[in-house]
Nucleic acid binder design. Structure first.
Length: 210
DNA sequence: CCGATATAGTACCTACGTGG
DNA sequence: CCACGTAGGTACTATATCGG
């Protein structure tokens, strides 16, 4: 795997965009490639073409990041019709069943795949603004899993802040008094954002639940 | 050419918080 | 203590893209 050096990984930004970015709608292949490019040297082995198409994307990473993470990457969208203007959201449409990980044909309830103790990362990417948003995946499937296409939202303030400062984080209140921390960052600060994300997740796990 | 799957977008419903 | 208003979350539906 490590011997593979895909051409798209080395392409200049604009050329990559021109060649790989779909005109309308965003494919997993494109989004995953953007992710890998953003992580750069932090990625140990470039995933195969097959892996790039498949939904969650498992990447081998270098220190100080965990050796492996499982990315649930979605295109982040923004609606003016939303209650709170500027709110970003992603819809979780992929998951596994409670116990194992057989593909869910039409499973009512789904969870993130935690096989091999690989931490799931719920991440959204906004193609127009080149911004990554990282949610707390653990927190979302602790509520007995999530429905068919669960929406996960982000307060605009975190996004604005990230656009201004390249990286930012904030928290939002969930029902039940839980607090979810969200990290947003531009691609070149994504590695930092990931570290921060994991740090915050560990914190909330300690203080909130047990 | 047909079918399947994923993404985008909108609407509705419920919970939480604040004010009277 | 009750009522009203706002925000968050869930679900459904439509459209587009990809694969067979």
């Amino acid at each position: 795997m490590g011997s593979t050096t895909p051409g798209w990984l080395a392409l200049p930004e604009d050329e990559f965009e021109e060649r790989y970015r779909p005109p309308r709608g965003f494919t997993s292949g494109y989004l995953h490639r953007v992710l890998v490019r953003a992580l750069g040297p932090a990625v140990n082995a470039a995933p195969s073409d097959e892996a790039l198409k498949r939904k969650p994307l498992v990447l081998d990473l270098t220190s100080p990041l965990p050796p492996r993470l499982r990315f649930y990457l979605y295109a982040a969208t923004q609606h003016q019709s939303e209650r709170q203007p500027g709110t970003f959201k992603i819809q979780l449409s992929v998951g596994v069943t409670r116990d194992g990980k057989p593909a869910p044909p039409r499973a009512k309830r789904r969870w993130f795949d935690r096989t091999d103790n690989i931490r799931p990362i719920a991440i959204g990417y906004h193609p127009d603004w080149n911004l990554f948003i990282l949610w707390d995946a653990d927190l979302h499937d602790l509520n007995g899993g999530f429905g068919s296409s669960k929406n996960v939202q982000t307060p605009p303030e975190i996004v604005w802040s990230a656009l201004a400062k390249d990286i930012s984080h904030g928290s939002r209140r969930l029902h039940g008094g839980l607090t979810e921390t969200i990290v947003a960052a531009r691609p070149h600060r994504l590695v930092e954002a990931l570290s921060l994300r994991i740090d915050l997740s560990n914190e909330s796990m300690c203080e909130g639940l047990f």
